[in-house]
Design a protein around this nucleic acid. Structure first.
Lengths: 351, 351
DNA sequence: TTGTATGCGTTATCAT
DNA sequence: ATGATAACGCATACAA
């Protein structure tokens, strides 16, 4: 049982082992060139004293801190937490620490935290940042961005996903199709997704009238408000494509509150495939992005960068997949008579 | 537009302003006692050079790092992310940075990361740690634990919540009540919850037969497996209390797969009130803990501790609340005929 | 009001 | 193979 003291330093270990600080440092960092005997003695001293490196001093002295910094707008968005989980697993496996900071999508905070990371971390993962990579971090550090803009990015194929969404609703026979959009101003991902969707509609000779386009802010509340407006139009849409699952879930709530039956009276299609999409009433049909895998890949790429590989640019794009569940159907489809009949059928459609 | 240079230091600013490093330092830290003129000149130089403090050097020099360290098992458990969101909002408001590290509930990792935080952070938030607070961090730093064990803890009243669960099911007329438990070994919270539940049953003269007790590991998969076993017993329970919402959602899935109708044939009651509980089919009745608020309170407490207040012990216990939705009903209740009829009624019952 | 010397714990560099 | 010394960027303590 190693007792934790207030502060054991290299010097303490060196004294205990009867060697110099540098020898201890070299042992800790697995440097070659020393007797197995001294190495063993130092290691014993380390264990004996309960020494742990001080990452702060290490970072200041110029060596790597073994930390990956993460800048993310929030923590309780499923979209974010799935990605971060993937990243954390990968970092873990590589022996690196993930230090996660939130920015609340606030540009000032973003820069401030980035300032910390610049000296604290060996590399930075930017999760859907609200600013350009260079404005946030300069080029002091390797950076990988989860999102659309940056030199090294990992993202889903938003455009294809949008097209897939349009295609699915059109294939089901829908013609009055509305869209609950995300914030373009904030996120280029949102624009790409929307453009793909519009392209898909146009490809089928369809058009989206202005009143069928609402802004849902990527949130449940926003989605609910947007859907309420859409569902109280004189000519109600028979299908809604929401820019993410959270706003789709909001739309589901609005439909329920207004007595609009899903999918009988209204089909709802989401984007992301967050965990909750599988358990909604009805289960949500959605365009899936492999969030956890994207997080893993981003971390992997960043780690490679830190370790020395230097691809100047790299844009990794994961395919979007249509997951058909219960919230979409041909217009006017009869609904199942009872709750909870066995209905776990789930269809995956690749583009 | 301040250009981000590789490294502007105090010395650079001092040179630019024609003063000493200390004067610059004092200006930055809002120390009193200097001419407005020099203060202004220094500030201009700071802006001009684009200087940002190096938190690493600052921390090493002995001053506070303005960081709160967080140790959490995972990031994609809703339970965790709600708490962390609350904590991050509070830290933000106080001008502190939350540096979050994951431990995967692994004792070794926990200690290792704690070692980092000991020098990196001014205080530490432990989210459902798998070890005793002292074993993890010694007493080098202020610590607040979200969970049952520690000197300063923030948690929900698990025992009362368990009793509330039993009471609700009994009030509905259930007698064959089963329990999907969490991991006692890992979490004292799980034991408390279960004890409260058993106490509630006993209070009504009920007993829980051994075959009505299953372990659900706090996960959807575990909950689904456990529920499958319970629902294939010769004498099936009419109600299940799951130790958390995730395992309750797993149970919901098992019921659906087996053609057991909820709540007609089976009532399911969860614990936590995560976001997803509102959108399941049917919406999940659950014992709510105010996760976000608990995170805020824990952060607040820790910040006070860091700022100097020194309550030796402090155990903050939030009330558990019963939220009645659609997954519980008297045994044999007729189910609503159609999906999506307006049914957002939601009842809150305080103990 | 402002400046100087010293140290935080580590690594880099250059000796031995 | 090992050790002495000098940074890293800042703040504390004290002097001017």
């Amino acid at each position: 049982m190693t007792e934790i003291l207030t502060s054991v330093t290299l010097a303490d270990v060196a004294r205990a082992a009867g060697v110099s600080k540098m020898t201890v440092s070299n042992v800790i960092n697995n440097k070659p060139g020393m007797t197995e005997k001294t190495r063993a003695r130092v290691q014993r001293a380390i264990r004996g004293t309960g020494y742990v490196v001080n990452p702060v001093a290490r970072a200041l002295a110029g060596k790597s801190s073994n930390m990956i910094g993460v800048l993310t707008p929030r923590l309780n968005w499923p979209f974010v937490s799935e990605i971060l989980h993937g990243a954390s697993v990968t970092a873990e496996a590589a022996g690196l620490n993930l230090a996660i900071f939130t920015t609340a999508s606030n540009v000032t905070l973003e820069r401030e935290r980035a300032g910390l990371l610049r000296t604290l971390a060996d590399g930075v993962l930017l999760v859907i940042p609200s600013e350009d990579e260079h404005a946030i971090l300069g080029d002091a550090l390797p950076v990988v961005t989860l999102g659309a803009q940056g030199k090294r990015t990992v993202q889903v194929d938003n455009h294809a996903g949008g097209r897939l969404a349009a295609q699915h609703l059109i294939d089901l026979g829908h013609r009055r199709i509305a869209h609950i959009a995300g914030q373009h101003s904030q996120l280029r991902d949102a624009s790409e997704r929307e453009e793909g969707f519009f392209a898909g509609l146009r490809g089928a000779g369809l058009n989206l009238p202005a009143e069928y386009l609402e802004e849902g802010e990527f949130s449940e509340e926003g989605g609910e408000r947007a859907a309420r407006r859409l569902l109280t139009l004189a000519e109600r849409p028979t299908a809604i494509f929401a820019a993410n699952d959270r706003s789709a879930i909001g739309a589901l709530r609005a439909a329920q509150a207004l007595g609009v039956r899903v999918p009988h009276d209204l089909s709802i299609l989401g984007f992301d495939d967050i965990h909750a999409a599988r358990v909604t009433d009805p289960p949500l049909t959605t365009i899936r992005q492999p969030l956890e895998e994207m997080g893993e890949t981003a971390a992997r790429l960043l780690i490679d960068l830190i370790r020395g590989s230097q691809p100047a640019e790299s844009h990794i794009r994961f395919p979007a997949t249509l997951i058909v569940r219960g919230s979409t159907a041909p217009p006017g489809t009869q609904v199942r008579p009872l709750l909870n009949v066995a209905s776990t059928e789930e269809v995956r459609v690749s583009p």
